[in-house]
Amino acid sequence: MTPVWNESFLRIVGRWGLALIVLFFLFVLSAFPFRIAHLGEVRPVFMLMAVYYWTILRPVPPLAVFMVGLALDLLSDYTFGMNALILVAAQWLTGSQRKFLLGQSFLVIWAGFALIALGAGTVQWLLFTLFNLALVPAKPMLISVVLSTFLFPLLVLPLSAVHKALADDPSSVA
């Protein structure tokens, strides 16, 4: 059980550092003002991609996902707790199917993400409609889901790099 602190401490820091950098990059992508018309409106759900993919490959602590959601909530103008709710629920759902998804081809995992993204978008849309007591246009949400689905394979590259780096790490939960 004793981790090999002395010999690979720096390596461990480096590996978790990579995870943090990717996370930070996703944060910036989630808030950066794109100067392309309507791209902000249909912004892909980058953080959901990370939560989904990493949940399949390794159990991420739900508390960490919750905190990331709250951070997103602080940065955005959404009701406080909404992103946290969406991310934790998505992780929960993905986690429950983890054993099935682990043995599947990438296409199945990709389809799974499309479903999760659609589910998350729909829940958000329902909540906003409820809070505003008015029908919020659903089109931007649907476009965002489609865009996220198409971008998912691209983002999987840095995400799996982080996974591989962490998988070699003896101190991490594999």
Partner: peptide, 25 residues
């Protein structure tokens, strides 16, 4: 303990998120 919190918290966290949302509203 780390592993226990890994498995037990989603339901609690979902409830917490809903509570936070209600408080914010």
């Amino acid at each position: 303990l780390k592993t226990v919190t890994l498995r037990l918290t989603p339901a609690v966290l979902v409830l917490l998120a809903v509570t936070l949302m209600a408080l914010h509203r």
